[in-house]
Design a protein around this nucleic acid. Structure first.
Lengths: 226, 226
DNA sequence: AATATTCAAAATCTCGAAATTTTAGTGAAA
DNA sequence: TTTCACTAAAATTTCGAGATTTTGAATATT
């Protein structure tokens, strides 16, 4: 028996967005408003409002009179997201290395510590799926911390959006949900270089770190095509 | 007597957005849904949908249960918009100079030609306000053309959003609606350098061109404060 | 005079149903 | 067998009203 729990507009938004970013909806699939309305026990307008917001942010594709779909990821769209993340994170890093004070270093250290801990747990236990949400949150926090002293609200907002779209497009069970054993060493190298304020080194590791999922993917595709 | 014309959702969206970007709504003022509903002869939901989209894009500020306002521009938010435009346009320009073929040059030449024509008309006639919409469109087309061969849909989409928010924040009657006599020479210099594929020169002029409104503004503020 | 409180008017948000459009399935014609 | 037209079902979008919350002015209190 299902209890008729009531969800608010923002709760529904967060829930669907999180399901999108961890790959619970298949790319290209349609999100039926009526189904969701019953699921969340709300009106059609509320669901519509949520879907419009998600499509405005690029998490869904809206076609007038034809509803909402999860965008079909292409090799081009993934490359695009990677390049955009690299552009924003490099710029944010450069500015943070210039402007960041002790508070910034402390925030970075804190987020690195959490991320390293979770990655260690995943490596030891092999339980990726059950730690997905924690890892997702921790990885974002770390990358955000790197750029958080850039003193640009706009850069941070744009990065938040692009980072989440990156996850949605690139992360799936094919890619082990974005978790890679090499991440552990890379995150440490990025953290160390950032603390040393070594921009050339830090940005170079950062770039190949973000790029990695892409090259991994195209390798997979070549294998599949062969 | 008023004829009860019917407007579609997307028409209303475009109309309000255009009014925002050319400064027809005062910064900090509230957009009353009921008033707009009567104006556009539609339902409350339709207006709400439009306002939600505009707030998602950063053209309006939404506070739950308290409606929608035109964001109050601050010196920080303007600096932020300028820096973001510079980042995106420099990157787009660099990529376009690398990738752009003859078609790109032709598109750039076409948009430059239109822009130069309109700016000439404005300079001759002094009629800025009546040419606002044309100039607005032409200036965007030119700046878009500069970066249009970057081969990044995401960069172009983000730039479109930031450019419009830049207009909304920086353009008002104080700043002569963004029109400056120096623009004519600057646009020509940017165009010439782009055709010569001279990135260092072109990006440097481009940066000071975008920055100009800001320094002009802070000069105005200093005068006002004195 | 300044601060609180009350209450009605106005505005926002949510709802469920009506209107419109798309989708899918059936059958007729080429 | 394929193509086209028609129709019924399903989905999306728009609507207007009702419920909830905010606002602001008038009154009361310190």
């Amino acid at each position: 028996m299902t209890t008729a729990t009531k969800y608010s507009s923002s709760e529904i938004y967060s829930d669907i967005k999180s399901k999108l970013t961890i790959g619970k909806f298949l790319q290209g699939s349609k999100l039926r408003a009526e189904r969701l309305r019953l699921n969340y026990n709300c009106s059609a307008s509320t669901i519509r409002e949520v879907m419009l917001k998600l499509s405005c942010e690029g998490h869904l594709e809206a076609v007038e009179q034809k509803g909402f779909r999860v965008p079909m990821g292409t090799s081009e769209s993934r490359t695009d997201l990677v390049r955009m993340r690299v552009l924003l994170e490099k710029e944010g890093l450069k500015l943070s290395l210039e402007n960041g004070k002790l508070d910034w270093e402390a925030e970075l250290a804190a987020s690195y510590h959490k991320l390293a801990h979770i990655e260690n747990v995943i490596q030891q236990s092999g339980r990726i799926v059950s730690n997905m949400l924690f890892w997702n949150e921790a990885e974002y926090s770390f990358h955000k911390a790197l750029i958080s002293a850039c003193e640009s609200k706009l850069l941070l907002e744009t990065h938040y959006n692009i980072y989440n779209r990156f996850r949605q497009q690139l992360i799936s069970d094919d890619t082990n949900y974005g978790f890679d054993i090499r991440n552990i060493a890379e995150h440490k190298a990025i953290f160390d270089a950032a603390i040393k304020r070594n921009y050339p080194l830090c940005s170079s590791i950062l770039e190949s770190h973000i790029d990695k999922d892409l090259s991994h993917r195209s390798k997979l595709q070549k294998v599949a095509a062969a």
